[in-house]
Amino acid sequence: MDFSFTEEQQMLRDSVSRVLDKTYDFKARQILVDSDKPWSAEVWTQFAELGLLALPFSEEAGGLGGSIVDVVAIAESFGDHLLVEPYLSSILLGGQALALSDHDIARDWLAKIIAGEAITAFAHEEARGTPAPEFVTLGAQQSGGNYFLDGGKRLVLNGAEADILVVSARLSGVAGEKPGLALMVVDAKADGIDITSFQTIDGRSAAHIRFDKVQVSAEQLLSADAHALLVTVTNDAIIALCAEAVGIMAALLRATSEYTATRKQFDVPISSFQVIAHRLADMKIAYMKARSSLYYTTALAEAGQATDRDLAVLKGQIGKLGRAIGEAAIQSHGGVGMTDELVIGHYHKRLIAIDKMFGDSEYHFRKIGQISE
């Protein structure tokens, strides 16, 4: 199986890296995170000009017809630079959900999102990572041709800045049942919506959203049988998140190798100490395992052959290996590795956040066992 990128994908990858190298170093990122801005409008405009906002969508939907491999090619750079821009929430989650719908309202909003004129947030998470769509409990009661949302969503990435919310809800049934799930487009400023915004541990903007009998018209219903659609959207997002994590792991390995080669004790680099050399070797092995798992699963997804077990193996491995690499990097840097002024701790926080999304490593390892039974 060929895991190499095509010439066009490598060119895209290099172009994104060059842009971010020039405009998005760690100092600039920290200034942005410490400001009152959720992300850089200038970087988002550059993404639109480069075609990154249109990349994953089909040509029929107004996009460039990119594949999951194209997304992985750029997501590693996103991880390397610790991007806080809403690519995951607005493009890979909310945007993809809109793209998979044939409703006019979905296509109208998608055109604005691709042009960089609007932001959407994916209001799906409810508790403990909402690892599978069937765990959604937010109720949508139908009355007089309309639907009324009553309940809450948690950790909605970029929920406070979104123009529209793509909301997963339950028309019938209870948590754990696949039938009865729906997907809706909701105006973020609709009556009855209460948004509590905050910053996550990894510097991203998020919000808890409360729906108090929020009215949704029948035209805003994207799908009344949305389980399969939600699985497609979240599976692709999981692969993209894992690619971002692999980019972070590569950055941590590189930074730790450079630091231990220059930091001296007893007039010799600490990388010459056996315990440090073994730790670096373990980090490299963990990185190669994570990267191989990512590329293998991406190739399967590109061919339409990735199973639930394949996704669970990938997400479980990335969570476990990412934590191991992050902890090893901090330990190798010593006390300075814990400071806010050094990038190492920020990489580790992002890896922890990625692990918790859509089910942590322990959940996915248990899932593998259940599938194997």
Score class of each variant (00 low, 15 high):
4 S>F: 10
9 Q>T: 00
10 Q>L: 12
11 M>Y: 13
13 R>N: 02
15 S>E: 15
18 R>E: 15
19 V>E: 14
21 D>W: 11
32 L>T: 01
35 S>P: 03
35 S>T: 01
38 P>E: 00
46 Q>Y: 14
46 Q>V: 13
49 E>W: 05
49 E>F: 04
50 L>W: 11
53 L>C: 09
54 A>E: 01
63 G>S: 03
63 G>I: 00
71 V>M: 06
77 S>Y: 09
79 G>E: 06
84 V>H: 10
89 S>W: 07
92 L>M: 08
92 L>Y: 08
97 A>R: 11
99 A>T: 04
100 L>P: 06
101 S>Y: 00
103 H>W: 10
104 D>T: 09
114 I>P: 07
117 E>Y: 06
130 T>L: 03
130 T>S: 06
134 E>Y: 01
137 T>H: 03
140 A>T: 06
144 G>Q: 03
151 G>W: 08
151 G>H: 03
154 R>M: 04
164 I>D: 05
165 L>R: 04
168 S>E: 14
170 R>H: 04
172 S>I: 05
175 A>R: 09
181 L>T: 02
182 A>P: 03
188 A>E: 02
189 K>T: 15
193 I>M: 04
195 I>W: 02
198 F>L: 07
199 Q>R: 15
209 I>T: 01
212 D>K: 08
219 E>K: 08
220 Q>M: 10
221 L>S: 01
222 L>F: 02
227 H>G: 06
228 A>P: 11
231 V>C: 04
232 T>I: 13
234 T>L: 05
240 A>W: 01
242 C>L: 02
254 R>M: 08
255 A>E: 14
258 E>L: 09
264 K>H: 14
265 Q>V: 13
280 L>A: 00
282 D>T: 06
287 Y>E: 10
289 K>S: 14
289 K>C: 12
293 S>D: 15
295 Y>M: 15
296 Y>E: 15
298 T>K: 08
299 A>M: 07
304 G>F: 05
305 Q>L: 08
315 K>L: 04
316 G>E: 01
320 K>P: 09
323 R>C: 08
331 Q>M: 12
334 G>T: 06
344 I>E: 12
351 L>D: 00
352 I>H: 07
353 A>M: 05
353 A>H: 00
355 D>P: 04
361 S>L: 08
367 K>W: 06
371 I>F: 09
373 E>T: 14
